[in-house]
C-alpha cells in the first residue's frame, strides 16, 4: 500500500493555495450536507448519537481544516485554521486526496489507518460510527452536489476522474520515503 505521504499534494499546489481560499467552502458544504440529509436521511440515522459530535477533518496538506457536525438537516461545516485551537470530539488527519478517497470509497479507511496514512485521535467510537455510515452510504460527488440524471453522472465522471488524475500526479510528484532514504 502507498502511504499517505506519497499522496500529498505537491509543494507548489500547497504554496499557491492561501488559507482564506477555503472560507467559501464552509457555507457550501453546510448546504450540501443538509440537502443530502433531506434526500438520504438514513445515512445520518446510522450515526446515532454521534451526529452531534464535532469531527475535525484536517487535510494535512491544505492550510485549513474542517469542523463538521453531521447533524442531518442541522449539519454544520466550518472552515478552521490551524493557528486557532479548535475544540473537537475527534480529529481525523491525512492528505486531502486520501481523505476524499475514503469519503467516496476508492480507498479503504481501515487499511489507511492501520498503515498510518491517516491518523485519528479523540473518541474512537465516533470515528468507527462515521466510518460505518460512510461505508454504507456509497457517496458519489453528485450526492453532495444534489445533482441527478445525466448531469449527476457527468459530475461523478468528471470529479472522480479528476481525483484519480490528481492522485497519480501527487504520487509521481512526491518522492517516496524509500527514494528519500536512498
Amino acid at each position: 500500500m502507498r502511504d499517505g505521504e506519497e499522496m500529498s499534494l505537491p509543494a507548489f499546489a500547497r504554496r499557491i493555495l492561501p488559507p482564506f481560499a477555503g472560507l467559501p467552502l464552509g457555507p457550501f458544504l453546510t448546504l450540501s450536507l443538509r440537502s443530502l440529509a433531506r434526500r438520504r436521511p438514513q445515512i445520518f440515522e446510522r450515526l446515532g448519537e454521534h451526529r452531534h459530535a464535532r469531527y475535525l477533518i484536517d487535510p494535512t496538506d491544505l492550510p485549513f481544516a474542517f469542523c463538521v457536525v453531521p447533524d442531518g438537516t442541522s449539519a454544520v461545516v466550518r472552515v478552521v485554521f490551524r493557528s486557532a485551537e479548535t475544540p473537537c470530539d475527534v480529529a481525523i488527519r491525512g492528505p486531502i486526496l486520501v481523505l476524499l478517497g475514503v469519503l467516496e470509497g476508492t480507498l479503504d479507511g481501515d487499511a489507511l489507518f492501520f498503515h498510518r496514512a491517516i491518523s485519528v485521535t479523540g473518541k474512537t467510537e465516533a470515528v468507527v460510527t462515521l466510518r460505518n455510515a460512510i461505508e454504507d452510504a456509497e457517496l458519489r460527488p453528485s450526492d453532495l452536489l444534489g445533482l441527478t440524471g445525466a448531469l449527476g453522472r457527468f459530475a461523478d465522471a468528471g470529479i472522480l476522474g479528476g481525483l484519480d488524475v490528481a492522485r497519480r500526479v501527487a504520487t509521481t510528484a512526491t518522492p517516496t520515503r524509500r527514494e528519500v532514504e536512498i
Partner: peptide, 13 residues
C-alpha cells in the same frame, strides 16, 4: 470503541 483510544505522545502512538 468507546473504550478505545489512540494517543500520540512524542514519536509513538
Amino acid at each position: 470503541p468507546e473504550a478505545v483510544s489512540y494517543d500520540e505522545s512524542g514519536q509513538a502512538t
